[in-house]
Design a protein around this nucleic acid. Structure first.
Lengths: 218, 218
DNA sequence: CTGGATTAGTACTAGACAGTACCGTACCGT
DNA sequence: ACGGTACGGTACTGTCTAGTACTAATCCAG
């Protein structure tokens, strides 16, 4: 009731919009300083929230970290996959694949996503489930979707392949690997330009088509 | 004097064989617990050495870590490259490439190497030079060597390619990416069997040859 | 054998951090 | 307006760790 009175963000279920603020702050700090480099005081401070409040919403540092990574990975994964569904064929195979490759590579190469990837890899021993989650929602999901698309293209004679899943893996990594692996070791130093990324995407597509394309189509 | 008395390894320049013991212990502990998960006391304890001695040989925790990673990466890199030089052609291109691919993939997928990779990636923000070193001595060195080999093969008409360096990158990641990226996120859980690795290596080689091979040679 | 250096052992300093306790206040549904 | 819940602020506990200080035992060369 009470007519008009949204101060800023009162629309939330009043109590636990703090939760969101805390997660936001946690994301910033964890991504910047890593798991052990981050203190709960720092998160509370950045969230402009009492430490007690943090512990009311998340029992543990581990819990907070875990939930943060899980939700972040899910968000990104969903965003990438909205775009991925736009891979409908216009008849021009190379153009369609290149367009998708460029978009996907750009998504994966965002600094925040790269940093999250480094973080999850670095903590893969301490948090095995997080590693698994990242892999399932990231590479595996992408590759699976690609595999079904490729299977259809093969059925229509546009591609030649015996194993769509394997071909999807090859395609995925032909496009991503070089920039991604390089970026893993260079912490935000010397980032690749967007133009370079597009070139890598296109080059990967060309190799894939040279290997699996059929002469009749281009 | 006292005639017979090699307890174990007296051959070293007496004083700084401690150094070696410390590095050995540091390797074990750092690889198991990460940089911040490791205490100097633990290293000293495992090395059966006083903490004072550790600090006599390495001014810092950072120094110790840094030197450890650098030397370890160099060792592995050298070992891999001895094998790499054995890629002399016997005339059968696919066989030669497959043999090299299998050996190299197996080297990179050793648990200790994987763990080191995770560690360096996770600390890439804190230790940028280590990331750079790993990348230079690892992927970049391998790819560079491959590029010169491919350039020769192209000159002799065995391969078709405009850009040997790019082709080398593609070849390298066609073989490594799928197992390697998967392994990054699964901390020693669910390791791939040697048979699976060989299959990945062979499949990568086949795609590469389908894209860059010349009809006359196989 | 002897003198100088290295080492083990241990205790200590100083700082950081996860998690808890407590108190007074602000918010919220009713 | 009321009563309970959430919140801010702050102080506190317990623990851990990098790095240092100091002494006594040990090693090694000449």
């Amino acid at each position: 009731m009470t007519s008009v009175r949204e101060t800023v963000n009162e629309s939330e279920p009043r109590a636990s919009r703090k939760r969101h603020v805390i997660l936001q702050a946690a994301r910033t700090v964890f991504l910047r300083n890593g798991y052990v480099g981050t203190s709960m005081d720092e998160i509370a401070g950045l969230a402009a929230v009492s430490k007690q409040t943090v512990y009311k919403h998340f029992t543990d540092k581990e819990c907070l970290f875990s939930e943060l990574v899980t939700t972040t990975v899910s968000e990104i994964s969903d965003r990438v996959h909205e775009e991925l569904l736009n891979l409908e064929d216009s008849g021009k195979l190379e153009e369609d694949l290149s367009a998708w490759a460029r978009r996907t590579l750009a998504s994966v190469m965002q600094p925040a996503v790269l940093q999250l990837r480094r973080l999850v890899i670095g903590e893969a021993t301490r948090f095995p489930e997080l590693g698994r989650t990242f892999y399932e929602l990231g590479p595996r999901r992408t590759i699976e979707t690609l595999a079904t698309v490729f299977a259809q293209l093969a059925e229509r004679g546009v591609l030649q392949l015996d194993d769509p899943a394997l071909a999807a893996e090859h395609f995925n990594w032909l496009i991503m690997s070089a920039p991604l692996n390089r970026a893993m070791f260079f912490g935000d130093d010397q980032p690749l330009a967007a133009g370079d990324l597009d070139r890598y995407a296109d080059a990967g597509v060309r190799v894939f088509i040279a290997a699996h394309g059929t002469p009749g189509h281009e």
